[in-house]
Amino acid sequence: AKSRQTFGDKLNSLLANFRTVDEDFFDDLEETLIESDVGFETAVKISDELRQEVKLKNAKTKQAVSEVIIQKLIELYEQEGADEDAKLHFATDGPTVFLFVGVNGVGKTTTIGKLAYQLKKTGKRVLLAAGDTFRAGAIEQLAEWGRRVEVPVVQKPARSDPASVVYDAVKRAKTEKFDVLLVDTAGRLQNKVNLMKELEKISRVITREIPTAPQEVLLALDATTGQNALTQAKQFKDVTPVSGIVLTKLDGTAKGGIVLAIRNELHLPVKLVGLGEQLDDLQNFDPEKFVAGLFGGLLQSTDADQQQE
């Protein structure tokens, strides 16, 4: 269907239909990038660089322009992500703690459920902390995931101090020798100062109990979010040591361009991707596979064009 067109598909049709390389073409290119949610600044930056590059290489034919553009895109993507580390890090000794943060409704709790399932399958003993004591039904939601995956959940009554729930959970993870503790937190918009302070406190409590923890602070971002995703990442980075992104709801959009924006503007690695609501709808992010998915169709079709000529 049309709505499932990938970024590569769209670029392809743009490249297939242009007549001359003029300002209109670069406007269209910019729009294709923006339409794929690469983020506004990234789109402008990329199309400016491509404009230069096309001029520099004096590319005139359709084939030449297409090649320059594709080459440049891949180059940009790889260069920006050169020293990115997409792996999840675990403690060498004692419990590993992953803290999940993000704005409202992006998929933090669901991701914890899915990840608990994955980790458990690899033989790890997993504990969950119901650190969202605020949203109606949030504790019950995590408890339900705990039941499904069969892992214990540390919880207190609704409205309890989240930092104290987290404290209890870290203690228990240490004394009962759990391998991994996954900490859920309430959704909060990045411009709410008090809520962001509360998060800082939660993060501090963890580090006080285990100096090397949290090993990961994972920011969940909804893949269908627009420009605000970048602001979210910037602001959360300011209060907690965000170490990676969980890109959720990628099943709802074929755009995926946001990964480019995140690379380009934030230099935060995507570590996990959410592809649905079920237990096994979570995957490790594989940059190479992703690049193939993003640009793959593109490369093939230019090869085909070449053969035709």
Partner: peptide
């Protein structure tokens, strides 16, 4: 959705 009913009831 897990606990959607609990949420509405709350």
């Amino acid at each position: 959705r897990p606990a959607a009913i609990d949420q509405l009831q709350a």
